[in-house]
Write a protein that binds this DNA or RNA. Structure first.
Ligand SMILES: [Mn+2]
Ligand SMILES: [Mn+2]
Ligand SMILES: [Zn+2]
Ligand SMILES: [Zn+2]
Lengths: 133, 133
DNA sequence: TTGCTACTGATAATCATTGTCAATAAGGTT
DNA sequence: AACCTTATTGACAATGATTATCAGTAGCAA
């Protein structure tokens, strides 16, 4: 309800994740510690979740089950991601036809309260050539 | 490599999950215990994973992060699911246009080794009317 | 400046899943 | 049918990401 307080820690997190990759809470915590911040791990978890609730941060679940976070650039509309499994780089994509199609097929089968998850992953160009030798 | 041994426990699991719902390993374990089987939890985990590796069982990750398992009816082709978040019932669906489209957009942006996850969830007709009053 | 209270962080707790390892039993072989 | 090899089992401990505690701290509105 009340807007979140802009604490030193919250500012540091927002600053850190502005670089565009998807990383785990623990990985962001390590970056912040490496950059000299004495921020606590629990605070990183709490703040990332708070930002995600506000739509300022995107979340995705990795292959190993960890939640990954990244700054959201496309605030306005519902969208999905094409993410590199190796370096975490991601691009935002939208799937207008899929959105409509999924709602249609689900309600045709009697389902309500329809939701969907769509994530594309791969190896980005840089990682593809690097891992290729 | 060698085919899996058809143990009493494996047979009991296959029998139990033939009823079509998506449930967690722990939930399947409870069903089995309730039905009189003295099977161990670790065995349920291992066997479900083994069956999933063989393509006999489908897996999906729930909202809370648990892995859900169900018997796979459509063995032959790659497919996805429309699942009820309330009772676990699911139907298998295929998305021929999506499969091709996702590969196209990802490779157009320089990505290789492309994979995707697509899951549709909702409330099935029965659960919709029940929760509605 | 003061006061209220949200926020922080060290730490313990949670909980799904996996690892350990001695005992067991598939199932192929005499 | 008795035998052997070894995959499988299950009680239990360990892992690891995430969440809960709670006393101390610091936004920020008045
Ligand atoms: Mn976004
Ligand atoms: Mn299936
Ligand atoms: Zn990459
Ligand atoms: Zn249902």
């Amino acid at each position: 309800m009340t807007p979140a307080r802009m604490t030193r820690q919250r500012a540091a997190i927002i600053d850190a994740i502005s670089d565009g990759d998807f990383r785990s809470a623990q990985a962001w915590h390590e970056s912040l510690r490496g950059a000299g911040s004495a921020i606590g791990l629990a605070t990183v978890y709490r703040t990332l979740q708070s930002l995600a609730d506000d739509g300022d941060v995107d979340t995705v679940v990795s292959e190993s089950g960890e939640t990954l976070y990244r700054w959201c650039a496309a605030h306005t509309t519902h969208h999905h991601h094409l993410r590199c499994r190796s370096c975490g780089t991601a691009e935002e994509i939208d799937l207008p036809s899929f959105e409509q199609w999924s709602r249609a097929i689900a309600s045709a089968r009697g389902y309500t309260e329809i939701e969907h998850t769509v994530e594309l992953t791969g190896l980005c160009h840089a990682c593809s050539t690097e891992l290729d030798h």
